[in-house]
């Protein structure tokens, strides 16, 4: 009896998470189009629904109805699997994202005691999807995109994880929920060396999820669409979904690790969490629609010559502060 109940709860939680991911991705796509449009003094989508809120729904319907085109010479198994490899890890990360609590229930699928470690491990997998897409497409643009992506994500993982470790050191725990609770009095970002860690985290996370100015894997001006050049219809939508889910995840992580997660005065915790997360997302969008893209060698140089040393120095400073 108990096992059936747990099973039902598992299904319900899974459905809730998937539903949230889909709605969030659709909202983010609409929001990105709106933000970019207003930065460019346009209106963006205006026709479908009020100010085009249903535009993403229309787009999804279009993508679902599209023919599934499989180019002749692709490496079929790899090519078919790649979109799932891009999406599934990012969905799995949602297991231990603390959304706050509602009516006394903690909104977290499972508060793993190694939460951060689990997230670090899973976010590294998504590079596989991109690399598989690049290799399996049998297209030179895709191959170049995949190669760039592999190099980029591996490089930027180092400063990103080190800056996350700084937060873990201050909290003294790997559990996401406990990290949030550790920031009860003061958010981590108000400490100077944590602010540096926050900046490093946001920059390397931007690179990690391939957004401008670090979007070289899909650099439109030279690689057409990079690793997803050959994809269309729902498979393309999967990459898109993965991209926007990743965007949500890194912003949620930044909010949780450095901005006090769901904590905040007056408003309910869930709202605080969403406000912080979408605030960071909006800033990332603002950055995306302002800057040109860096070149591949500059990108690597930036990771290894600037971000990584600073992250390590910052970690050392954090250690010194804790030991003092």
């Amino acid at each position: 009896m108990v096992s059936i109940l747990t099973f039902i709860i598992m299904i319900a939680v899974g459905a809730a998470v998937l539903g949230f991911i889909a709605v969030s991705a659709m909202f983010l796509i609409w929001w990105e189009r709106k933000v970019s449009a207003h930065i460019q003094t346009r209106y963006g989508p205006m026709r479908v629904g009020w100010h085009g809120v249903l535009q993403s729904v229309a787009d999804v319907i279009k993508l679902l109805l599209k023919e599934n085109i499989v180019p002749e010479d692709v490496d079929k198994p790899i090519w078919w699997l790649a979109p799932f490899f891009a999406v599934v890890p990012s969905v799995m990360v949602f297991v231990c994202i603390p959304f706050g609590n509602l009516f006394g229930i903690d909104l977290i699928a499972r508060d793993l005691n190694i939460g951060i470690l689990y997230i670090m491990a899973l976010t590294s997998i998504s590079v596989l999807g991109i690399f598989m897409a690049g290799w399996g497409s049998n297209n030179k643009y895709s191959l170049l995109g995949g190669m760039r992506s592999a190099a980029q994500i591996v490089s930027y993982e180092v400063p990103m994880i080190i800056s996350m470790v700084t937060a873990v050191m201050f909290a003294g725990t790997l559990s996401m929920q406990k990290i949030v609770e550790a920031q009860r009095g003061m958010w981590f970002i108000f400490q100077p060396n944590m602010a540096v860690a926050f900046l490093i985290f946001v920059i390397s996370a931007t690179a990690e999820i391939n957004r401008t100015p670090f979007d070289i894997p899909e650099a439109e001006s030279e690689l057409v669409a990079g690793f997803h050049t050959e994809y269309s219809g729902m498979k393309f939508a999967m990459f898109f979904l993965g991209e926007y889910t990743n965007l949500f995840i890194v912003s949620a992580l930044a909010a949780t690790l450095f901005l006090g997660g769901w904590q905040g005065p007056f408003l309910p915790p869930v709202l605080w969490f969403l406000i912080k997360t979408y605030g960071i997302i909006t800033v990332l969008m603002w950055v995306r629609w302002t800057f040109p893209r860096v070149r591949v060698d500059q990108l690597m140089g930036f990771a290894w010559k600037v971000l990584t040393p600073i992250a390590f120095a910052n970690l050392a400073v954090a250690g010194w502060i804790l030991l003092k």
Partner: peptide
């Protein structure tokens, strides 16, 4: 610069 334009009137 982009922030300034974010709140300027759309020309569409």
């Amino acid at each position: 610069v982009t922030f300034k334009n974010l709140f300027s009137k759309a020309v569409t």
